[in-house]
């Protein structure tokens, strides 16, 4: 009973909305990256070819911003991934208290970024804030730092707060994967007498290919376009040391009226994200084969 047109018609409603309201503006932004424009409706958009991209390549601030995205990616792969995975495992385990944990672990994403930013600013506050007090109490004075006010640490502090905030959200992706591993599989390996480690390597991880794929694509694209948390925690400072591509995009376009440069940054973010997504897709397909 498969109608020939049914597949098209099932895709169409969402696709039509998406094409009009998302894809068209996105395509428009990509196209505008080859023009110079000051953001005034009556001013002409002047075609400049690759000039905006060349300007980007010549300015070390943009390298630093993309390097900062790289730091978010490193944080995501090394810490956020195992963290979210463990949290996902905990909340679906059904151990005592897992319902409370389920609610608590998600709280950071629910509380507005204003609250989160203010709280972490207080914790990381160098003049008597609890983190430095703790370090000093443990006689680790040398480790106490001006976390958000030092060009060496500010970006890492934001990377850390970002992971803390979004662990609860990524946890859900792994939880969804974990609950859908059929009971029979566990039963069958239990009969085989497989050890814990073996079960983890041969059953759990392979069954979660899609969850890992989702995490990898989301974490990397999220790192490339991270904006809100940087903007609210440091504003890109001190002296631009924690700027990310998206904060520079915002400043160039919306503060300094250089929309061409802004769109070129946006396009680069899009291209890097797309390349990475395709890479992950291919890797997952290799694993399946």
């Amino acid at each position: 009973m498969k109608s020939k047109y049914a597949p098209f018609l099932m895709v169409l409603p969402l696709l039509a909305l998406y094409l009009l309201f998302v894809f068209y503006p996105v395509a428009n932004a990509v196209l505008s990256s080859f023009f110079s424009w000051n953001g005034i409706a009556s001013s002409p958009q002047v075609f400049v070819g690759l000039r905006n991209y060349i300007d980007l390549a010549k300015d070390p601030r943009y390298f630093r911003a993309f390097a900062n995205s790289g730091r978010f990616i490193i944080g995501s792969l090394l810490f956020l991934m195992p963290l979210s995975f463990a949290l996902g495992g905990i909340i679906v385990s059904g151990v005592r208290g897992s319902r409370v944990m389920k609610a608590a672990y998600f709280l950071p994403v629910v509380l507005s970024l204003t609250a989160i930013s203010l709280m972490w600013r207080s914790i990381l506050y160098p003049n008597g804030g609890p983190l430095n007090a703790l370090l000093e109490g443990m006689n680790l004075d040398r480790l106490a730092q001006n976390w958000l006010g030092d060009v060496r640490f500010a970006i890492w502090a934001v990377v850390f707060v970002n992971m803390w905030t979004y662990a609860g959200l990524n946890m859900l992706i792994f939880a969804a994967g974990l609950v859908s591993i059929p009971q029979e599989i566990w039963d069958s390996v239990a009969i085989d007498g497989a050890g814990k480690v073996a079960r983890f390597w041969y059953i759990t991880l392979p069954s979660l290919k899609e969850s890992f794929k989702a995490f990898l694509v989301l974490a990397v694209s999220g790192s490339l376009k991270v904006f809100d948390i940087v903007f609210i925690m440091t504003g890109g400072g001190p002296n631009g040391s924690s700027d990310t591509p998206a904060t520079l995009l915002y400043f160039q376009a919306f503060r300094f009226n250089r929309f061409g440069i802004g769109n070129a940054i946006g396009t680069l973010i899009l291209l890097f994200g797309l390349a990475w997504a395709l890479l992950v897709n291919r890797a997952v397909r290799k694993l399946e084969a």
């Binding site: 998406y18 998302v22 894809f23 996105v26 428009n28 490339l224 376009k225 919306f254 396009t267 994200g273």
Partner: peptide, 13 residues
């Protein structure tokens, strides 16, 4: 085409 939609920062659009 759908995938490209969440890769671009919203400010561009």
């Amino acid at each position: 085409v759908f995938l490209s939609g969440f890769l671009l920062p919203v400010h561009s659009a």
